[in-house]
Design a protein around this nucleic acid. Structure first.
Length: 488
RNA sequence: GCGGGCGUAGCUCAGUGGUAGAGCGUCACGUUGCCAACGUGAAUGUCGUGAGUUCAAAUCUCAUCGCCCGCUCCA
């Protein structure tokens, strides 16, 4: 089995078959942005739907949400993004290595704790005595560059009355700020989860690697709220459950793994974090993150309780986020507005959160790469995408063997019937063998062919993508047959 | 942001100053009639973009955009 190993081959396949195009290509392209073509949009939608079905539809303890990309600026003050997503970076003039100012220490002693951007600014003045962690040169740093990791935009048509907003860098915060609303409207009880799929935006320092790291990307996030003390078991549960989702959809086990973060790698609020990683064929064949599953403790809800208490300061500071600091927590925070009351135990607490956060674009790429296969058939190379039926962009293609003798009419009728149930493709042009192979490269699981015999006994052939074997099925049973084989 | 490589048809690529090409794919017709068959014919190019040098630029120079690899970075 010859697997493609170069990213270029994948990019080429994606363009050739209409999965993924460079954004704004006729204008020379726009860095880090990609468009999904006719097959790609179906694939990506299927990935999204597979996630939603598993995480929301099939469960009675999780509900969905779809919140706006633009949110109140205070959301990002409370979450910490407004501070931390503005890291200062400097370059060592001697070795050209870039370092974050807040990562530098005197005489090169390393520390990785995040500090507020104001503090980093203050530190920037002291670069003269900082040591480059790469080459050891002291005081060779250039003027620090401020990286705004959140996209900014303005709301308001009247230029004199606009407010600067951020495009969300993650969908999770929209869930936290709607925690109260969902609680009040849906009669859910802890433990329960809120799930959301949507676009997020980050000004990544580096992008690259095709659609793996882009500045505009789609996330599928679940915030699963549980009682303190039960968080460890739910964390373990979601690790296993999320890993299984990928393998159930056909990712080969040897290309997938869970990687637990080291304690010093954890964000300050996280109690535990594990990545679901896939071995992508780019870079040095490195394992790359598809999804992170974190135990975020009660950090987020408590932060938003602090944010709610800070609103007056924000107004008084002329709505300038940079001029305020979050108010300290109420001593009685556990009874705050985002707390939960358990009727049975009569206990009130701020729920802990387990967060599985998956990248839809990354997963789509992984499913695409993993499904790709080449095999030798009679001296010819057959390219085939062995998608799981749930993910296949087109579920069945319907052909007349030849474009005459009434075969197209019968095939059309079958096509019209099937397309109401799932995505189908009709093709009557050229040799049937070529049509089969084209569908192989699109990953279509089944091809239905109407031939001479169809008119006599009302049967058609069903050709299997993976084995290339054909069987005859009654034309009036074809729908049920396919639905069953497709697991629908 | 640094270093290296690359950018010519939908894809893979050839083309080192003098008429823009090949294979594959696509389309049409014929033939065939179950696995990328064959025959004939056809369409498709801002040679990434812009400027410069030159009688003449895909080719030389500069700038710029984009992609890949390696650093760096990365909740």
């Amino acid at each position: 089995m010859a697997k493609i190993t170069k990213l270029d081959d994948i990019v080429s396949l994606c363009k050739r078959r209409g999965f993924i195009f460079q954004s704004s290509e006729i204008y020379g392209g726009l860095a880090s942005c990609y468009d999904y073509g006719p097959l790609g949009v179906e694939l990506k939608r299927n990935v999204r739907n597979a996630w939603w079905k598993r995480v929301v539809q099939m469960r009675d303890d999780i509900v969905g949400l779809d919140c706006s990309i633009l949110m109140h600026p205070m959301v990002w003050k409370a979450s910490g993004h407004a501070d931390k997503f503005a890291d200062l970076v400097t370059v060592c003039r001697k070795c050209n290595t870039r370092s974050r100012v807040d990562h530098l220490a005197d005489d090169g002693e390393e520390h990785t704790a995040h500090v507020r951007v104001e503090a980093a600014m203050a530190e920037a003045g002291e670069l003269a005595r900082k040591k480059c962690p790469a080459c050891g040169a002291v005081g060779q740093f250039a003027e620090p560059m401020a990286f705004r990791l959140m996209f900014e935009t303005e709301m308001g048509a009247n230029v004199d009355d606009t407010m600067t907003l951020f495009l969300r860098p993650e969908t999770a915060q929209g869930i936290f700020v709607n925690f109260r609303n969902v609680m009040d409207s849906t009669r859910v009880k802890v433990p329960f989860g809120i799930a959301q799929i949507g676009k997020s935006f980050r000004n990544e320092v580096t992008t690259k690697a095709f659609i793996f790291r882009t500045r505009e990307f789609e996330q599928a996030e679940l915030e699963f709220f549980c009682a303190p003390g039960t968080d460890d078991q739910w964390y373990e549960y979601w690790k296993a459950e999320r890993f299984r989702w990928y393998t159930d959809l056909g990712i080969q086990g040897e290309n997938l793994r869970l990687r637990e973060h080291d304690p010093d790698e954890l964000a300050h609020y996280a109690k535990g974090c594990v990545d679901v990683e896939y071995r992508f064929p780019f870079g040095s064949g490195d394992w790359q993150e598809l999804e992170g599953i974190a135990n975020r403790t009660d950090f987020d809800l408590r932060q938003h309780q602090r944010g709610m208490r800070t609103m007056n300061d924000w107004y008084e500071a002329g709505r300038d986020l940079t001029k305020i600091t979050l108010k300290e927590e109420d001593a009685d925070y556990i009874k705050g507005p985002l707390s939960y009351f358990n009727e049975e135990t009569k206990e009130r607490f701020v729920p802990y959160v387990i967060e599985p956060s998956a990248g839809i674009d990354r997963s789509t790429l992984a499913f695409l790469v993993d499904a790709y296969d080449e095999e030798e058939v009679k001296g010819e190379t057959r390219n085939v995408l062995r998608f799981h039926p749930d993910l296949a962009p087109v579920k069945a293609a319907i052909f007349p063997l030849v474009k005459k003798d009434g075969m197209p009419e019968i095939a059309r009728k079958i096509y019209d019937d099937l397309k109401a149930r799932f995505t189908c493709f009709y093709d009557e042009k050229g040799a049937v063998g070529r049509r089969y192979r084209r569908q192989d490269e699109a990953g279509t699981p089944f091809c239905i062919t109407v031939d001479g015999q169809s008119k006599e006994d009302n049967t058609v052939t069903v050709r299997d993508r993976d084995s290339m074997e054909q069987i005859r099925v009654g034309a009036d049973q074809i729908r049920g047959y396919l639905m069953e084989r497709l697991g629908m």
